[in-house]
Write a protein that binds this DNA or RNA. Structure first.
Lengths: 157, 157
DNA sequence: TGCTGATGATCAGTATACTTGTCAAATACG
DNA sequence: CGTATTTGACAAGTATACTGATCATCAGCA
């Protein structure tokens, strides 16, 4: 009988489920209230200030409609500012606030701890191999999800 | 700077995202409207008829509150029956209907195709190794999520 | 028997994720 | 220059997932 443990789909969900739980736990212990998505978005905005929401979505491989809500919550927490773009009146320019910058610095240890905790059962070599295999599988399937990863093209025109 | 591609948390989310998309695509192509969770629940009920919802949740590692909604939808589709348990008036006994059994048979090829498609970028050996590593990491972190996997105790002690 | 704690199910609330559709602005093209 | 297509953002609707709470019932124990 085929067990659930033989299905990559089940294993993927389960691994991600644990990863999210670990992230939340570390974040709470550090005294912050940031979800994995919110962290990824905040870090991406810090790295590419002035990007619009669609570009942000592509950079971290999230759906555009999901990003709307994420940015809403980050704005509400005062970590991100959303301003009209001078170049495209449809778009919003995203930038990180001072509070956002500070938060990003302070949670870095918790983020590192979470990434290690979710690999706790593996040796260092196994962890590396797991990441390599996931990267390879993801690269092959990138276009299959609605939210493929898109390289952030720096401003050109 | 640390790239997203070095974070197991991001890779896990991305891989799962693609896995779900692939599952949906195969399911739709086969003419069915079952989500991954609904499939897992249906298969588990078929394998252990008469189990209650809490046991089901433990068997496929889902949160109990999530299972409530999943069973609702399966019942609405006529694939699963929910009856009061004769032994515990709090509990609901779950069983698969004839339509559920038939559906389960018919979607099997699509499920297999989905499991293969999400590993398409890997060699067979790599796929096996990816599953082994995920299983190992999951085993170590099983208790960290709110919905740990629980062995379904078959009628034996 | 009465009390206490554990358990099964559900609900309320929050946050992802996705589909589909709409709207306005920008861009491409003839 | 005007139209057709694309694009950025959002709204509505569905389905996971989780936290925390409530409620009824069950089981252990004094």
């Amino acid at each position: 009988m085929r067990n659930l443990n033989d299905k990559p789909g089940h294993l993927a969900r389960r691994f991600q489920q644990i990863a999210v739980a670990v992230f939340h736990a570390e974040m709470e212990q550090a005294g912050f209230d940031l979800t994995p998505v919110q962290y990824a978005a905040l870090a991406a905005i810090a790295a590419h200030p002035g990007m619009d929401q669609a570009t942000l979505a592509g950079t971290i491989a999230y759906d555009r409609t999901t990003i709307t809500g994420v940015v809403d919550r980050l704005t509400q927490k005062g970590l991100v500012a959303r301003n009209p773009s001078p170049r495209d009146r449809r778009a919003h320019q995203l930038s990180i606030t001072d509070a956002g910058e500070k938060t990003l610095d302070q949670i870095e240890p918790a983020v590192q701890a979470a990434q290690q905790a979710m690999m706790a059962g593996l040796t260092a070599a196994e962890g590396k191999e797991l990441m390599r295999l996931m990267r390879k599988a993801i690269a092959a399937g990138n276009e299959l999800s609605r939210a493929p990863l898109r390289e952030a093209v720096s401003a050109r025109s």
